[in-house]
Design a binder for these strands. Structure first.
Lengths: 140, 140
DNA sequence: CTGGATCCGCGATGATACTG
DNA sequence: CAGTATCATCGCGGATCCAG
């Protein structure tokens, strides 16, 4: 009954698609909210940037390069990015298995902006942290 | 005693601060994950961009300009941004109350990038949606 | 090596009602 | 107008075990 249910359970076929899109329609009233909320699954941006620095990477390599990510979250994140067409997943049928992840042109077109954003974060971290500190002190 | 304790329940005072920072330390191993995950509370980016288009806005104005946001979430988002020093909150002591929100220079320095990002989202939405569609069909 | 499947807690978010 | 307080829900994300 529940043979291969990918990550988000697929039983019906048409029914599922319908649900998928109606769900989408609800959340995705606006592309900004939609795409942007995807981008920061907490791991997505990091993943894209990491991939942006290489041609392609394997699962284990990614896991090492993204500190703190769990196996599951890496899998989920990669699948989502694949769904969105931001990266490709290539399986080499060998033993042991070898799978390579690589950004698509669409994915590449994002990397620049994300790096800028992370640079901004790095540069302004100090101010933000100090601001948070002061904010708390003000209230006590 | 608990005069203005914002939204996140504060009982102790020193204790609370301690927890706050230790929590921070845990999540904030890296500035990218930290700042970036804040940015897309699903509403934050939208809020910053909206404020970026005006000099300053009032609570209700913001609520109207950000479709779908709840009163509560707007409050929370604004408070977080204030904490981080990205905007200022000015209260005019009158009846009825008047509160204005305005980006700080730090906040303004982000607007450009966020607009770029949302432009990207708008431009590539179609591809992403189609990609998702194809992805589902492939699996069925 | 590269994940899939499951269980589960906690925090984020929404709905609703109330206030100065 | 601009919130605050409270409750209920729901999905993220971690831990763990399993498999090709």
């Amino acid at each position: 009954m529940e043979v291969t249910n990918s990550l988000k359970a697929s039983k019906g076929s048409r029914e599922e698609i319908k649900n998928y899109f109606s769900d989408s329609a609800k959340t995705k009233h606006c592309p900004i909210t939609d795409i942007l909320s995807r981008l920061s699954d907490k791991w997505t941006i990091h993943t894209i940037i990491t991939l942006g620095k290489s041609e392609s990477l394997r699962f284990t390599e990614l896991k090492k390069l993204i500190p703190g990510i769990s196996q599951r979250m890496l899998t989920v994140t990669l699948r989502t990015l694949e769904e969105d067409g931001l990266l490709t997943r290539t399986i080499f049928p060998q033993i042991p298995p070898r799978v390579e992840y690589k950004l698509t042109p669409l994915g590449r077109s994002l990397v620049g902006q994300l790096i800028e954003l992370s640079d901004w974060a790095n540069e302004n971290m100090v101010h933000i942290l100090r601001s948070r500190e002061e904010y708390i002190l003000k209230k006590v």
